[in-house]
Amino acid sequence: MWPVTHLLVAVLGAVATTIVVLVLAPLIFDRRVGMGGGMGTGAGQGNRQQLVADVTIAVTQALGVGLVVGALTAAAAGIIVSARVTKPLRAMSAAARRIAAGDYDVRVERPADDELAALADDVNTLGAALAETERRRTRLLGEVAHEMRTPLTIIDGYVEGMIDGILPAEPEQLGKVSDEVRRLRRLSDDVSALSRAEEGRLGLVRETLDVRMLVGGVVERLRAQAEDVGIRLTTVLPTESCAAYVDGDRIGQVITNLIGNALRATEAGGWIEAAVSASADEVTIRVVDSGEGLAEAELQRIFERFYRVPGRRGGGSGSGIGLTIARGIVRAHGGELTAASEGPGYGSVFTVTLPRAEEAGQTHGS
C-alpha cells in the first residue's frame, strides 16, 4: 500500500507539471514571437537562432512554472494521504495508551488499508488477550482465597481452643494443625507451579529421551504404593524406542500425577495400566484404570482449577489443580492432555500426546 501511495503522489506531481508545460509553453512562445515582429520569409540563420532561443526560453519558463505547480500538487496530495494514514494511527496510539493504563476492553475500528487493518487487528487481539489474562488472574486470586479459608479456619479454631483451655495442646491436636499447615504449603507450591505453567515460565530443560524409560521409572516408583492398597499397576511398552524432546522431570511429574489420581479413584482389587505407543509424528502415553470413572459433566471440568470430583475417595487431600498443572506442562511441550470415560463405574483414560523427536537414534536412557 505504501509504495502505491508514494507512486500516486509522484504521478500527480508529474501530471500537473506536464499539463502546465503543455499549456504555457505555446503561449509564452507566441508572446515572444509576437514581440519580435514575426519571422518573415527571409528569416535566415539569425532568425533561426532567434527561434531556437525563443523556444528554449518558452519551455524553460513553462517548465519552471510547471515544477512549482507540480510540487504544490504533490504536497497537497501528500497531505491528504498523510491525513488518511495518521488518523487511524492516532486512534491506535490512543488505544495502546488506554490498554497500557488497564482499559483492556478498548477496541480500534479497522481502516480500509490492509496494512493498517492488520495493525488494528493486532492491537485488538492484544487488548483481548490482556483482558482474558486479567480475568484469569482475578479468578485465580478468588479461588486461592477460597481454598485457603478452610485450613486457616481449622487452624484458627484449634489454636483458639488451646488458648482458651478447651482443647489440650497434645500431639493429636497439634498434629491436626500440622496437617493443615502442610496443606497450605502444598497449595502454595501448586499455585506457584500453576502460575509458571499458565504464563509459560516453566523453564523447561529439554533433551531427547525415551518416553518408555520415563513411564517405566514412574511405575516402578509407585508400584509398592499400589500393592499396599491392593491395586495391580502394570505397563505396556513397545520394543522400539519412543523418543521425544522433553523435560524428563516435568513429564515424570505429569505421569506421577495421572497414576496418583488413578490410585485414588481405584478400589482394592482394581488395576491401572500405563501404556506407551508411537506414530510417525507423536508419542502417546495412556493411563487407564478400572476405577470410579467420570460422568460427562465431570469430563468437561476435570482440568479446571480447584475442581474436585464429588465423592471421590481421597478427593479432598489434594489442591485440586494437579491436572491443570499437568496439562500446562504438556502444552508447554507442544502436546496435549485429554480425558475420557464411558461413565461412572467404567474407569477413566488419560492420554498424553507429545511431538516425537526427529532423531530417535540420539535418545538418552534407551
Rank of each mutant, 00 (worst) to 15 (best):
M1P: 07
T5Y: 14
L12A: 10
A14R: 06
A16I: 04
T18A: 10
V23Q: 02
G34N: 14
M35C: 10
G38A: 08
Q50L: 14
V52C: 08
V65G: 00
V69E: 00
A75Y: 09
A83C: 05
R84T: 11
R84N: 04
L89G: 03
A101M: 09
Y104A: 05
P111N: 07
D114Q: 14
D114N: 13
A117Q: 11
L119K: 11
L126G: 07
L141S: 05
V144R: 01
P151W: 08
Y158Q: 15
L167H: 03
V177G: 01
D179Y: 06
E180K: 15
L184K: 04
D189P: 03
A193G: 02
A197W: 03
E198G: 01
L202R: 08
R212P: 06
V215R: 05
R221L: 13
R221H: 14
A226E: 03
T235H: 03
L237E: 04
E240Y: 09
V246A: 01
R250V: 06
Q253V: 14
L258H: 06
W271I: 13
E273P: 02
S279I: 15
T284S: 15
I285F: 06
G293R: 05
F303T: 01
S317E: 08
S319K: 05
I321S: 02
I325M: 01
E336W: 13
P355H: 08
